[in-house]
């Protein structure tokens, strides 16, 4: 006799597919926010399952900071071609050129916060009413409060204290002209769940997640990759180390870890023994206790 209950990965998958289909049913012009990171790759993979044998009915939206790992861009373009979906690119460089935003100054300047304006401009320009993200509640304390369907007012702002209650599986995506939603189908997944699932489904991911010899410098307690944007400071030195990345963001701020994990199998093992959170190596979250909450309120991912 077969069993009539799901294991937890199947249940998480089923929940995510349910949410993706609700997005499609309730919104006019939804997109997947695609960063090239494992979480947005996972969401795209789940969307493929949700609508099979039809094509994914969402375009991918990439907010391009201009400070990418080159591999992310190749990966993105290959995936778009394979799935036959549209790609929308919002360019932070263009926002800078148009005077919408100005580069941060100072030693730890990044383009992280500038993405908010580019994202919101792109959403407005393409009349997007729902942006599907790979955010997870286990990542960060402000994200722990996110709904599956999360309302944004017509300035793109999040009001965490006045969110719509979400009960059972009933998702309310009703909105007025100019407002939009963010949808988070993998809210309930943890980093471990994501890796277990990627391994189980054998999902293709950028090799940045896998340990390779890479050029890096030691900065703010993590290994920052060498790139054309990196300016060496006094006392800093470039090393070659076997490094992999737990998250992929801007190349200028994403720290890697020393690792021997060069297969999915080994990554899963490594992650299960990991004693630090994955965002612990992201300097964007280290700026203050409420760095994520503050950015999210303004419209960040």
């Amino acid at each position: 006799m077969s069993k009539y209950y799901l294991n937890y990965l199947d249940e998480l998958e089923s929940e995510a597919i349910y949410i993706l289909r609700e997005v499609w049913a309730q919104f006019e012009n939804p997109v997947i926010l695609f960063s090239g990171g494992k979480d947005s790759i996972l969401v795209t993979h789940l969307a493929k399952k949700a609508f099979f044998p039809a094509k994914i009915p969402f375009a991918l939206l990439h907010v391009d900071t201009g400070h990418n790992f080159p591999e992310t861009i190749y990966f993105r373009d290959d995936l778009v071609k394979e799935l036959g979906v549209n790609l929308i690119v919002g360019s932070v460089q263009e926002s800078i050129n148009n005077g919408r935003v100005a580069e941060e100054r100072g030693k730890n300047a990044t383009r992280n916060a500038l993405q908010i304006t580019t994202l919101l401009d792109t959403i407005e320009e393409h009349r997007i009413d729902c942006a599907i993200g790979g955010g997870r509640r286990d990542e960060e304390k402000a994200r722990a409060k996110e709904r599956f369907f999360s309302h944004r007012n017509d300035f793109g702002e999040w009001d965490p204290k006045n969110q719509r209650p979400e009960l059972w599986n009933l998702l309310n995506g009703k909105h007025f002209e100019g407002e939009h939603f963010r949808a988070f189908p993998i809210s309930n997944w943890t980093e471990m769940d994501v890796w277990n699932y990627i391994k189980r489904e054998n999902i293709k991911i950028p090799s940045l997640y896998v340990a390779h010899e890479r050029e890096v410098v030691w900065r703010s307690n993590s290994w920052i990759p060498n790139s054309e944007y990196l300016k060496l400071e006094a006392g800093e030195k470039i090393y070659t180390k076997k490094i992999r990345f737990r998250t992929l963001g801007d190349i200028t701020i994403t720290g890697g870890i020393e690792s021997e994990a060069d297969t999915l199998e080994k990554i899963v093992q490594e992650v299960s023994a990991m004693r630090k959170t994955e965002r612990g190596d992201r300097s964007d979250d280290k700026r203050s206790e409420t760095a994520m909450e503050d950015r999210k309120k303004q419209g960040y991912f």
Binding site: R137, D138, K141, A144, K145, P160, K161, S187, E289, E293
Partner: peptide, 17 residues
């Protein structure tokens, strides 16, 4: 959780762990 919750030492919303 959120800043207000830390300041007031309470949970305002549902938080998932």
């Amino acid at each position: 959780g959120l800043r207000d919750e830390r300041e007031q030492g309470i949970t305002i919303d549902v938080a998932y762990r």
